[in-house]
Design a protein around this nucleic acid. Structure first.
Lengths: 178, 178
DNA sequence: AAGGACATGTAACACGTTACATGATTTT
DNA sequence: AAAATCATGTAACGTGTTACATGTCCTT
């Protein structure tokens, strides 16, 4: 349950509501749960049961009560414990490779089209990432040189992955036997 | 439901049982369902309902009946239709990046350890892939130059991804501010 | 008039993983 | 004696996505 630790991490910066978390996670490559309502709200309830977060209720006029979550001591410990735990390998699910594998009986033209479409999608993703980075709409804290450096490397990691995918596709198109 | 098309693809080569499919998919990077029993057997039932596969029963002594599945015309069409459909972007779930992001408050030593452990895991994965490739335990058909080339590029793609991950981690370790 | 921001939440479904159950035969 | 191979399948659970429901205020 990785979303649990992602939430603990974000809460370690400052107290947040479920809605805040949703906004921070949505459209984020890093928080790949895509701002999923369901998982965020139920994980928060779960974390509260476990005693890893506290809730502070903020009544508002004309709006539902805002529930501000913050880490408890136990929450901070749980996060710290996870941080030094065994890292996981990235999960690379590349459905396109399966599609490509069985496309070899299509015409050269059709395969080339397929690869071109793939390239375009990847390129678009890359451009969007760069754009988000430039506009500062990505989470990108820089309270000290180390934090700044690490976060720049995090976004680099994704850009590098997509860039490599582009070059791979381009090479494949150039060298595909007739 | 991508496993559906992965199964149709494999069946397009030759008729196979659920057990055969399971063996082909397990420990495979490409077929990331990890040889999952449950999904394979139920997808086969589903495909049969849809009329995309035929079943041929093979009674055996001392063993359960073997069910050999093969593609129907409709199955071949469904596969072909999927092949020329819109490619999907790869799904890159890199939990380690989240872990790293909140590790910046650990000691330099601890972060370095974390990165070293990550590198080792990735390196191991890379070595295993290369080993599997050398031993021919990966699915790697080469009935013609194009098929041979495409499959070599498929496995290259994964090796490239892991290689890039290694270089990224190494760079991070070298440049991490104190 | 329509849609988005704010803020909570639930329902339904789809996808994925692990473990179990059966039971003979063969290998370690 | 234990474990793997062959071959089917189910149960239980965990994770992830989409859509819906409520209701006010503000912007287009």
């Amino acid at each position: 349950m990785d979303i649990k630790y992602a939430i603990l991490g974000l809460l370690s910066w400052r107290e947040l509501s479920g809605y805040d978390l949703k906004k921070m996670m949505q459209d984020s490559e890093l928080f790949y749960w895509s701002g999923n309502n369901n998982q965020i709200y139920s994980t928060l309830v779960h974390l509260h049961h476990e005693g890893l977060v506290d809730v502070q209720l903020q009544p508002q006029e004309h709006l539902p009560i805002r529930k501000l979550y913050s880490l408890t001591i136990e929450g901070k410990d749980a996060l710290k414990h996870w941080l030094i735990s065994e890292p996981q390998l990235p999960q690379l699910r590349k459905t396109f490779l399966i599609q490509l594998a069985w496309s070899i009986d299509l015409s050269h033209q059709e395969i080339d089209n397929l690869l071109a479409t793939y390239e375009n999608e990847v390129r678009l993703r890359l451009v969007m990432l760069k754009e988000q980075l430039k506009r500062g709409t990505l989470i990108n804290p820089a309270r000290n040189p180390r934090e700044k450096y690490v976060w720049s490397m995090i976004w680099d990691n994704y850009m590098q992955s997509y860039q490599a995918e582009l070059e791979w596709a381009s090479k494949l198109r150039r060298n595909l036997p007739e």
